[in-house]
Amino acid sequence: MTHPGTRRPGEARERETAGTLQRERRGAGVTETSAREQRVPGAVAERARAALGSLPRGEARAVQALLAQGSDVIRVSVSEIAAAAGTGVGTVVRACQSLGFKGFQDAKIALTQDLAPLVGERSPEHIDRGDRPAEVLAKLAASSAEALSRTPVSVDGEALARAVELLRAAPRVLLLGVGTSSPLTQDMAYRLLTIGISAEAPSDVHVQHVRARLLRQGDVAVAVSHTGSTRETVNAARGAHEAGASVVAVTSFSTTPLTEIADVALVAGGLETRYRVEAMTSRLAHLVVLDSLLISLVLAEPERSETAQKLLADVLAEHRF
């Protein structure tokens, strides 16, 4: 039996070896920057495999699950890797940090760019280095159209209807999102106000968390996150859940820390590419999902929406020539 504060046999060696790996990674071309600069296919993955023997069992399983994804690792979430490895999300993150990465997101980007060319025929948009701007535009438009066409298939209809009912009855709605998801939440909060629903989308993450904890039963928090594993968004959503509010998640992955908290998960998003991480196609898909919620609310409460729209028209008239 190991007493509290007593290190298990071999733990010191494992920590020393992991530390050596991180130092080697910084000095021998395994850093994120140098790996991307050198473009030596398989270098990062090979060193990760070499480190398996020096990692605790749980972390080693997490690394193996990560490597098993190959270049498609860019399309999986941290929760999916944890499930595949039979470990927790925290173990996956620690495993990535033991390899010298900042965290899971940093690791999967480096591994993806290590195992596949930055651009080329494998990318969903088939963009080549010699493409002219007009060709890039056409290919991206086609890719976005494809992502939008998949949205009705990926979003569960019953979940969407449930989200509409929660929002319809909510005294207050709080929109949560950071980074590239933040503009979507700002837009949605404003548009909800224009149909008579009290909504807000604080831009500061601390304010988001505080507002989430101040919600009550019947209120709704709508959390928008491509990965579903952004710490600030997940923490605020958890605060809303603990306060008794319902949580609606709009995300690109079905198994994430955010969907584990959410009462309703609306999953839609474009595939990430090897050179456009968190691509705009995902934002477009999320925007369509949010728009469908808005229009459904207008149809469900036409009188409330019409009254608010008239007031909005009067206000806007004062700001236009």
Rank of each mutant, 00 (worst) to 15 (best):
A201C: 12
E11F: 09
S296E: 08
R274G: 14
S305K: 02
E272V: 00
V205K: 00
S123V: 07
V40P: 06
P124D: 08
Q113T: 13
D291Y: 11
A145I: 02
R320Y: 01
R13L: 10
V63F: 00
S54M: 04
A85R: 00
P133C: 03
E32V: 10
L266K: 12
L215V: 07
V248T: 04
G177C: 14
R57I: 03
A147M: 05
T227Y: 05
I197P: 00
L316W: 10
G239M: 04
L316E: 15
T17P: 00
K139R: 15
T33N: 07
V250C: 11
I127E: 07
T33L: 15
D314P: 02
I261Q: 02
T20F: 11
R320E: 13
A28H: 14
E121K: 01
R304W: 08
L137E: 10
P202S: 05
V224G: 02
L140S: 03
H3L: 15
E165W: 02
E301H: 06
Q186A: 14
P302A: 05
L140R: 11
R122Y: 12
L67A: 01
V93N: 06
V92Q: 02
A169D: 14
Q22T: 09
E59I: 02
L294W: 03
V220E: 13
E32Q: 01
R13H: 07
R13A: 14
V136D: 06
P183S: 01
D72H: 12
I295H: 06
A28E: 14
E165S: 14
V155W: 10
V63Q: 01
H206C: 06
A134Q: 04
S71D: 12
F253R: 09
G70P: 13
A85C: 05
G86N: 04
S225P: 12
V30A: 06
A223W: 05
Y275I: 03
N235H: 09
A68S: 14
G157C: 07
V210S: 05
V153L: 11
G70V: 04
R23N: 10
G179H: 04
D72I: 03
V264T: 04
H286N: 04
S149Q: 11
T17K: 13
N235D: 15
S296C: 08
L266I: 09
P257A: 01
Y275M: 04
F321E: 13
T273M: 10
T180A: 15
G10Y: 10
T255N: 14
Q64S: 09
A35H: 11
A50L: 11
G130S: 15
K310N: 10
P4H: 04
S305W: 04
A142H: 08
A68M: 10
I81D: 02
V222R: 02
L115V: 01
P152E: 12
V155R: 09
Q309E: 15
R216Y: 10
F101E: 02
V173P: 00
L137F: 12
A189N: 01
R49A: 09
E200N: 07
G19N: 15
P133R: 00
Q105K: 03
L184D: 07
H286P: 08
S182Q: 08
S292W: 13
T91A: 07
L193P: 00
A68G: 11
R129A: 14
R57S: 14
L193A: 08
E46D: 14
V264F: 11
S305F: 06
R47K: 11
L293D: 03
F104C: 01
A50Q: 12
A95Y: 01
A243E: 14
S305C: 08
G86W: 00
